[in-house]
């Protein structure tokens, strides 16, 4: 009964686009201070799960709880106000706005302390400070991802949702992104991350969930899943 221990909880979510149901009752929990990774094959419903949290699609059954409060079917712009920050996989920066303007837009729901937070973000992402006046559209893929994360962190997020943050990035940037994720987490923000890149994601996550065909298949700590032969065979690639 004690749900207070979870920052974010998905209870038996059934959801989809229009008439096609994609999630068939999934359960998921994020505890305070945790990094949780969702992995699984293409079409398993990983990104759909995140969209369900954000209120971007129809939830037909089940509920989403934030700090124990029901936020099921809250419209997306209100979800942010409640403390869920989200970085989409693609198109995640305003390309025609400067880096700083992007961050200011991230702070839309915030009323005070914007200059301070801006400064904190530029400390966390030093590359961005010198590029603050540049249009976000002119940056490289990795830098855009930084802008998108900084933009999401401009509010006091109770939880940060990242949708495949390293998709399409070079290995160098991938490592950088994962270490930034750990930095952000160490400041106390719980993170829910959806990744194709299962190995690295589980490597930095406290816990992980494996989704297959819209249902929970496995769950455990990052290490447990990494060591699980079945999981390894399915997702961690035959290459190794």
């Amino acid at each position: 009964m004690n749900t207070d221990n979870f920052t974010l909880e998905l209870k038996n979510i059934t959801a989809g686009y229009g008439e096609s149901e994609i999630l068939h009752g999934i359960n998921l929990k994020v505890k305070p201070g945790e990094i949780v990774a969702i992995i699984g094959p293409n079409g398993a419903g990983k990104s759909t799960a995140i969209k369900a949290i954000l209120g971007l699609l129809n939830i037909t059954k089940g509920s989403v709880l934030l700090d124990g409060n029901d936020i099921t079917d809250t419209p997306p712009d209100r979800v942010v106000t409640k403390g869920i920050s989200y970085v989409p996989q693609t198109h995640n920066v305003f390309v025609n706005l400067s880096v700083q303007e992007n961050l200011e837009m991230g702070a839309w729901t915030r009323t005070d302390g914007i200059p301070e937070r801006l400064d904190e973000m530029f400390t966390l992402f030093p590359d961005l400070r010198e590029k603050r006046r540049q249009a976000a559209g002119s940056l490289s893929g990795g830098q855009r991802q930084m802008v998108a994360m900084a933009k999401a962190l401009m509010v006091d997020a109770k939880v940060l949702l990242l949708d495949e943050p390293t998709a399409g990035l070079s290995p160098k940037y991938r490592g950088e992104i994962f270490s930034t994720i750990q930095d952000i987490n160490s400041s106390g923000v719980p993170i829910l991350i959806v990744e194709q890149n299962a190995k690295q994601a589980l490597g930095c996550a406290n816990r992980g969930y494996v989704l297959v065909e819209g249902t929970n298949r496995y769950e455990g700590t990052g290490k447990e899943l990494l060591d699980d032969r079945e999981v390894a065979r399915m997702f961690l690639g035959g290459g190794e």
Binding site: L56, P76, D77, V80, H91, N92, N96, E101, E104, W108
Partner: peptide, 24 residues
């Protein structure tokens, strides 16, 4: 101005504006 930048942001990408929490 904040509202002016938000206008440019929505013009840029309404979907992203929505999940950024901008009141469209």
């Amino acid at each position: 101005t904040r509202i002016g930048k938000a206008m440019r942001a929505v013009s840029d990408s309404p979907d992203l504006a929505l999940v950024t929490g901008i009141d469209v």
